[in-house]
Write a protein that binds this DNA or RNA. Structure first.
Length: 274
DNA sequence: AACAAGACCTGCATGC
DNA sequence: TGCATGCAGGTCTTGT
């Protein structure tokens, strides 16, 4: 479900609504997410203040004043809702309820691809979930030089590479398709043939992610912002989910195909091979 | 090392 | 109406 823009939107919502508050209770409805989160871990956090909410790739980082950090991933179907205690509807797949004074935050995830784990702030950088992740797309480290070197080593299709979190953090299926459309690059182009185009690839990724964040993310099935509002970037998709619909640039039909088990959408005219 | 495919789950839309 | 099928924002593991 959520890619970088959705996670970042949720992060901003949480940083405004619950950060700074003291966690007085953490209730676990069912611990069997991808990784178990134990009652002992919950007790360790109770009474602590949530200092800030950060993000790395698609992971939310809930930093507590005790030096503990909850690493939270929304998986495909995860949602976080915040509201006044008792005012948020309970849902079947609510896995964790964070109770603050005056605010309650519920983490639900029907498919349970998401996770919550506890880590020491000082060990975050080396944490197995985070250690191998590539540069954030808006960081200086995500440079034309870096990307050229990385793409030159690969033979596989460029679209699949953009989904690799080791190469770049936070891009998922929707925004990989959208970025390549903006760059005018066919998704099957072998990586090593795109090394001259890294400037436009980077600019396209930043543009689409930035616009999506400004729109509060994309709401398809599950995703809503922490305050319950919908994102609306889905109305700005140029290729994703638009199979057989006219390309907004050339009017020819958008194609769909599978790449590495994921749906890819592109315009064969505006995104020629190479 | 890079890559593809399968596995992990539930819910929903579609078609018979 | 019911049932089977396929698909969905992700990532981890396995095998080539």
């Amino acid at each position: 479900m959520p890619e970088l823009p959705e996670v970042e939107t949720v992060r901003r919502g949480l940083d405004q609504s619950v950060a700074g508050g003291q966690l007085h209770r953490l209730t676990l409805a069912r611990p069997d997410l991808r990784v178990p989160f134990t009652p002992g871990m919950a007790r360790r956090l109770e009474g602590k203040r949530l200092d800030s909410v950060g993000r790395r790739a698609k992971y939310l980082l809930l930093r507590f004043d005790s030096g503990d950090t909850v690493i939270l991933h929304l998986g495909m179907s995860g949602r976080i809702r915040v509201g006044k205690p008792g005012k948020i509807s309970q849902e079947k797949h609510d896995h964790a309820v964070f109770s603050f004074n005056g605010a309650e935050m519920r983490f639900s995830d029907p498919r349970r691809f998401g996770l919550m784990v506890l880590a020491k702030e000082t060990e975050l950088a080396e944490h197995p979930l985070l250690a191998g992740i590539g540069p954030e797309p808006f960081s200086d480290a995500f440079s034309a030089h870096y990307l050229s070197e990385a793409l030159a080593k690969r033979r596989g299709p460029v679209k699949t590479a953009l989904l690799d979190q080791k190469l770049i953090a936070g891009v998922g299926n929707i925004y990989a398709c959208e970025a390549l459309f903006r760059a005018g690059i066919h998704p099957e182009t072998p990586c090593h043939q795109t090394t001259e185009k890294t400037e436009i690839i980077i600019a396209s990724i930043r543009a689409v992610l930035g616009e999506a964040i400004d729109s509060g993310g994309s709401s398809l099935r599950d995703y809503v912002q922490a305050n319950g509002e919908m994102g609306y970037f889905q109305h700005h998709f140029r290729v994703y989910g638009r199979e057989k619909k006219p390309c907004i640039t050339c009017n020819k039909p958008i194609h769909a195909q599978r790449q590495a088990g994921r749906s890819t959408f592109f315009c064969p005219v505006c995104q020629p091979c190479r």
